[in-house]
Nucleic acid binder design. Structure first.
Lengths: 201, 201
DNA sequence: CGTTACATGTAACGTTCGTTACATGCAACC
DNA sequence: GGTTGCATGTAACGAACGTTACATGTAACG
């Protein structure tokens, strides 16, 4: 790729992170990048090619950042979901994820316009969650739940900006799951009063 | 309101439910409604007025439907969150909520364009959740959690259409909360082994 | 019958959209 | 030094956008 195109792609990403996808227009974009609509088409072929290049670069960035998260050794006792959350709400990563959620909504309504841009990150996230989850919780419904909690809290963070409350709520969820896990473990060790009692009648 | 305008509003709502907000254009809309862009402006004053009228009617519809849900007597033992979910994924209500989520995302990015249309249903939902929640769980973080679960699962339902898995995941969450509640209750009745033990050293 | 109010049709306005035609600069390479 | 290839400027294209001007139809009411 020509160096000029790479420069433009980087600036383009910043623009998209700041302005979103739904009202993107070549001329205002070009004005802010200090170039012209003519050149954007020249470098990227079309508006769709421009978006594709930008989203490709974004996915690359996110993938390497996720890899760095996976490589870093976890502070002991920190739950994976919480680590993922902390990673996601970083000043650096938050705008990227925000844009992905926006894209997901747009793609749900207009697949022919935005579908191409959406690598199936939802599916890959689900696999990621399943990988870190204990075996006894590895069914689709239980894997959906942490993702939904993450999605829902991230949405609320997008709309309210309240990092403290959303993070607190996530910790509550983690606490619920942990408590259930401990409860289940103790019930297995000494199956005394739980569900071994005959059903009433 | 003139009768013709009411007819148009009803048809307009159907169109918006089917096509979404982000790519709305007067002429295609008018063509499908069997009228003209000229008349849409005539009746609604402007495109923004048209959207405002449509969203107003939508909120009215949702409010009365929610009221009906509140008035109906709950099947005994059904958790409020599950009742709300069942209500939300109804064939009738689902498109409305889908549009509200779409609007919320768009408004988060372009408040000046879509902000007006967004009655603060997020806040009112949060109040609703707080109202049905036991006292000991009534802090903001714990109230955020059911909403986030609902939002996240609804998002996933929007994107995958998998009613079964998302509903199952919701039941899992309800189970977690219920289990924690029971656990807490028993710990209160016989505070024997939980947290009364001295911290180790 | 004339007036009034709602409704509609035709046509255009000015703007912005993505895209293209055409010409030109600039640096490197043979 | 001429050729080649990337980069850029100017200008316009046709289409679609929201909106408006102007004329007309229709039915109710005095």
């Amino acid at each position: 790729m020509q160096p000029r195109k790479e420069e433009l792609t980087a600036a383009l990403i910043d623009y998209l992170l700041a302005h979103g996808l739904s009202e993107l227009s070549l001329r205002p974009l070009a004005a802010e990048l200090g170039t012209s609509a003519r050149l954007l088409i020249y470098h990227f072929g079309s508006k769709e090619g421009l978006l594709a290049a930008a989203m490709d670069a974004m996915h690359g960035h996110l993938r390497s950042s996720l890899q760095a998260l996976a490589d870093a050794h976890a502070p002991k006792g920190t739950k994976p979901l919480r680590r993922f959350w902390d990673w996601a709400i970083t000043a650096e990563n938050f705008p990227y994820l925000k844009l992905l959620y926006e894209l997901q909504i747009l793609a749900a309504r207009n697949p022919e316009t935005y579908g191409h841009l959406l690598k199936n990150h939802a599916a890959s996230w689900l696999e990621l969650v399943k990988r870190v989850m204990p075996d006894d919780e590895r069914d689709a419904a239980m894997a959906s739940l942490p993702i939904a909690v993450f999605d829902g809290l991230f949405l609320e963070l997008m709309n309210t900006g309240d990092r403290k409350r959303t993070t607190h709520a996530l910790d509550r969820f983690i606490g619920l799951v942990e408590q259930a896990r401990l409860h289940r473990a103790s019930a297995t060790l000494k199956p005394r009063s739980t569900s071994t009692r005959k059903r009433g009648t």
